[in-house]
Structure formats: C-alpha cells, structure tokens
Design a binder for these strands. Sequence first.
DNA 1: ACAATTACATACGGAGCGTATGATTGTTAA
DNA 2: TTAACAATCATACGCTCCGTATGTAATTGT
Lengths: 202, 202
Amino acid sequence: MHKPRKEMIAETRAKLIAAARHAFGTIGYAEASMDDFTASAGLTRGALYHHFGDKKGLLQAVIAEIDGEMAARVNEVAARAPTRWQHFVDECTTYIEMALEPEIQRIMFRDGPAVLGDPAQWPNANACIASMAGHLTTLQEEGVVVSGLDPETASRLINGASSQAAQRIANSNDPEATSKKVVTAFKQLLEGLLKRPGPQPN
Amino acid sequence: MHKPRKEMIAETRAKLIAAARHAFGTIGYAEASMDDFTASAGLTRGALYHHFGDKKGLLQAVIAEIDGEMAARVNEVAARAPTRWQHFVDECTTYIEMALEPEIQRIMFRDGPAVLGDPAQWPNANACIASMAGHLTTLQEEGVVVSGLDPETASRLINGASSQAAQRIANSNDPEATSKKVVTAFKQLLEGLLKRPGPQPN
DNA sequence: ACAATTACATACGGAGCGTATGATTGTTAA
DNA sequence: TTAACAATCATACGCTCCGTATGTAATTGT
C-alpha cells in the first residue's frame, strides 16, 4: 500500500489533462496524437478512454479546467475598482488580456468551438460570462447602463468582440501599437451601453 | 474534341468546390472524407490534390467563393439607405443574417478559423470587412462617428460580435424572441461609435 | 480470503491521408 | 501531320491515427 487509490486516479487524470492541454495549446487539437501525448504522460490511450471516453471528452475536461482558472483571474481583478462601470470595463479588458495567451486562444476560442460547438452550450465553461452578465445586471439596476437589453446576450457579444480584439493583437507584428488601437475601439463600443444623458464616469 | 480543355478543368474545379462546400457545410471539415465527397462529384482524390494541393487548399477555395458571395450580398443591400449611418447598421445586420445560415456559420466562423487560423490573415476572404471599414472611414470624415479609432479594427470587433449574435440566434429554441434581444443589444453596442453631443440620425 | 470490480495496457481492424506512379487526353512545334 | 510534350486525373501503396475488444494486475467488499 504505497498510495491511496483515489490519489493515484486523480493523479493520472491530472497528468492526462496536463499533457493534453499542452498538446492542444501548442500543435492544436487536430494535430495532437493521442498516442503521443498520453505517452508523454507515461500512459497509453487505454487510460484516456477509461477516464474521458474519447478525445472530445478529454478536451471538455481541459476546457473546464481553463475556464475555472479564467474565472478565478477575473474575480481576482474584480476585487477593487473605483466605480462599478470601471470595474466592468476592467473585467472586459482582463478578458482580452487572457485571450492573448496562445494556449487560451487556441483551446478556448478556436479548437474548442470547432470541436464542441457553440461555447454557450458548454456544460462547465461559462463562469466568466456569468460574472459579466451579473455585473451588467446590477449596472442596469443602478441606471448606469441602458435598460431593456439582456445581460447575458450583451456579455456574449462583448465576448465575441474581445476574442477578435485578442486575435488582432496577437497576430500583429507591432503588438504594442495595435493593442492601443484595439483597446480604444473596444472601449468605444462598450460606451454604447452607457445611458446617454448621464455623466460619464471618469 | 468534345469540349475545350479549359472548360473541362474549370468544371472539375467547380464540381470539387461544390462537393466540398456541401460536405464542409453539413458534416463539417474534420468529418468530411475526401474519398467520399470527391466520389460524390464523380472524381477521386487525385483531382483534388492536383488542383488544390491538399484538403486545406480546397477549404481555402471554398472560403474564397463564399466570401465573394457574402460581399456581393452586402453590397447589394448597401445600394440605397436613408442615411449613411443607417446604411452601416444595415450592413452589420445583413452580416448577422448571413451568419445565420448553417453553411456560412460552420465554414466561415467555425471550421475555417480552426483550420486556417485568424480570418484576418486569409488571402482572399476579407471583402466584407473592407467594405465595412470603408464606410466607417467616410462616417468618421462626416463627423457622425467618433474620430481616433481605426476603421478596420472596429470592423473586426463588430464582426466578432456579429458572429456571436448569429450563433446565439441559431442555437436558440425560440429564434424569434432571441433575435429581437440580440439585435437590440447589438445596435446598442454600435451606438457607442456615434459622436455623443450630435443629434442621432432617425 | 475470495469473488467482483476497477484501472489501465495491449492487440486488432478499419478508415483516412499523402505520395508516387501510371494512363489518357489535349496541345504544340517541326 | 505527327511526334514529343505537358497537363489532367485515377490508381496503388504505406503510413498514421482512431475506436473497440480483450487481457491483466491491483483493490475493494464481505
């Protein structure tokens, strides 16, 4: 009895997820050979099929893990901010910053949707959207944001714009300059949500 | 001499593109067997590799064709509109409507980016974006839209939001109702581009 | 302690892809 | 006109990858 059973199982699951995450994030889902990255974890496809059913199931597990990390990072930034509106804007820009990382971009915004379909339908990967939608709701109640629009819908649209924003920065040969252009355009779009006659925060 | 040579070649190219387009648009790129859909066109993979190099090359050709059609449809709607701003808004909503079609959604917004990478880098598939960016530029010169933002960047962000909008409508079980919610939220975002103190068109 | 279940590896068959080669047809120049 | 040439497309082969079926060792329940 060297180790408790449950720990070994959790360990192999974690090793598989980590190996798959690295492979998916670098060479991509389609090019990632199950034989290869299971071997890099010291295992075989047998373990993979046992724990995750198939390649898609493993991708779902990887996505759930990344989504949890992203939500944690967003909530972390969410801790303190001058105004609620600024808080919301920071949340969005943080989302863009996270989307700049190649692993997140590849898995969450490219291969993920292609393999698993509409991210809105994913079971365990909507924490960030939920958070944004919640803040939008309170902003509406406070009269900062125009009423009459569905918070989750708006969050999804913003999310789509964020994804494009991150792609544009990431693929630029002058990321510093384009980052400024992208962020200003993005914030400009966000201001469309603000109530008109009211004074602008800041 | 039954037919001129060049016509036969163009015909086989067209048949391959049509067959691939149907397969990619229904079962998706990854699930589409080259043997199957070339056979459905009365050909083999030999013709495919000769004309397009590989499966990716054929996808590029399919995308170029669809992009041309989309640009044509956008320009068609662009013909007459009350104001330039309304014209721009119509252009965007037309884009959403096109993105509602399963074939376009699957090929242009899901499998395409996953296989070929960032759409902004595609060689022959940016006609719609270019059109939108052009209109944004003139709107800026006329003082309708705020200055200081890059037109193409803004177009890309709007494009990303449009894609999400279409997905949300398409996957809804009540497309009629969600369509209203999505379009209102989308237009609200667009109004962020308008100059504040000026009178709103309409 | 012994049956039953779990966790994982191994083995097998099939499908899909890319390349190399071959055959047929149209084009071109002498 | 015809012979060499090039282009178009089909066929054949080997490879990699995936999914399932099966095997085995270890662990749990009783």
